[in-house]
Design a binder for these strands. Structure first.
Lengths: 259, 259
DNA sequence: ACAAAAGTGTTCTGACTACACCCATGG
DNA sequence: CCATGGGTGTAGTCAGAACACTTTTGT
């Protein structure tokens, strides 16, 4: 088993240089929402038990954005998800950890020209917002686990992956002012309260129920459906779904009144 | 002369692979403001007379951001300028033009392994806002001119440089809602009208004089100076200067009331 | 009937708009 | 003294915040 993996990994190293753009990688911050908490999907590396963002390399004939889409799809099995590039992390510093070399050592690989992987990498950060229940997390070849972690309680992460998550969250918060959010975070139909919870967790603060309802409805991106019986001892809320047309129009043109 | 340049260029090619990160470049959209127009600084290549953004490569031990700072400094002779990374352009498409190969051909270079320059590049876009009068435009080794061009009347640009400018402008417009602007676009002291003109040209629309004054003053980033005699046949306006401390605090924390 | 949570209404405030008015200055 | 442009005032509108009131439902 260990042997097989090492072989697979050697093969990757051998072909990597031929297949991938050198020096550039992508990392995906995949946000989900569950049990009132905002979550990120992380991988646990076999060789050092440290956690990392799902990431990958860019094929020589592949758009960088497509590499991010591919990574997202491979780890979650989801398609057609909204992905947003948010920053290129390009400091020299981020390669200082010699992550690749340690990985090679700990895999017991020495007899190979691993120059490709050992050189410095800059990485493009992408974030995605996905529906927690629809995700089937799949670890990659180098990792033993692929699991959700609460944003407020992250484990030790390699290199600058913690900063990448924070930057992604920061950009997401800003973009809430211009872009609608929720499309593939929620099921087809949902009560407004669910959407409000998402906004509250992204922003990290409570919002007024009545005001949120009015504001979000004023955007004109929601279609009202019939009522729904939640089972609670209270009035059943209306259900809504996103009006795709106006939702994506809003994504492009922005929501807020600007200067 | 032509000979000398070709030699210089050959030398660059020879050392490029050793010096620079492969596959990644930076391009700077340098905005200036003059005669009521919003301008961009462009280079004109010697070999094909086409225009391009000032750009460059990243040294193997250099932060990507620093490469952008270096490019900005070399073309403008300015230091300590606000630079903002705004997007990584990573489509395969953008290398399709075979820009590098044509360049080599037209320089009459064939006897060299130019693999390094010919491979696909992704580029990080940065924008800068600079004081037009302080800039001393300096062409780089491959270009014959370095001049300002009105944003509304751009010449033919290589590859996707037109899209890069547009994206930079779009991001800049959005960021106007959160970040103050003007710090190194204006001299030390200036009347508010000047700042308003900048906002108007960036946004491409007129703003109300009275309301602009109140809004910009409400940010608390301006210090009032003594009056100034402009020579016009009218009341002399107050002069202001940016309060660096609160200006940079505002840059970090944002201006607008967000969610 | 009562608690819980949804839907809706109301009041207050503060920001932005549009425009009016007055002030200083040079010709 | 008047044209020009700067400074300031103000009425109207609109959005958001806070909170009250009513409605529906399961137990």
């Amino acid at each position: 088993m260990q042997h097989q993996e090492t072989n697979f990994f050697k093969e990757q190293l051998r072909t990597g240089e031929a297949l991938y753009l050198p020096s550039i990688s992508v990392d995906c911050v995949i946000f989900g929402f569950h049990a009132g908490q905002f979550k990120v999907l992380l991988l646990k590396y076999k060789h050092n038990n440290k956690w990392a963002l799902p990431g990958g390399f860019v094929y020589k004939d592949e758009d960088v954005e497509n590499a991010a889409i591919r990574v997202l799809n491979e780890r979650t099995q989801l398609k057609d998800i909204f992905l947003q590039q948010f920053y290129l992390f390009g400091d020299v510093e981020r390669s200082k950890e010699k992550h690749a070399e340690k990985l090679l050592q700990e895999e017991g690989i020495e007899d190979i020209d691993a120059h490709w992987l050992q050189q410095r990498f800059v990485t493009a950060g992408y974030y995605a917002l996905v529906e927690y229940n629809k995700v089937k997390p799949v670890p990659d070849a180098l990792s033993s686990e692929c699991t959700w972690h609460s944003i407020t309680d992250l484990p030790d992460l390699i290199i600058d992956h913690k900063q990448i998550i924070e930057k992604g969250l920061q950009v997401l918060r800003r973009q809430l002012n211009f872009q609608p959010v929720g499309y593939n975070l929620l099921p087809e139909v949902f009560p407004i309260k669910e959407l409000q919870l998402i906004y509250e967790t992204i922003l990290g603060k409570k919002l007024d129920r009545a005001n949120f309802q009015r504001k979000i409805l004023s955007y004109g991106i929601l279609d009202k459906k019939e009522k729904h019986y939640s089972g609670g001892a209270h009035k059943a809320p209306y259900l809504y779904s996103f009006n795709k047309e106006s939702y994506f129009k809003a994504l492009e043109n922005g929501l807020a009144k600007e200067w």
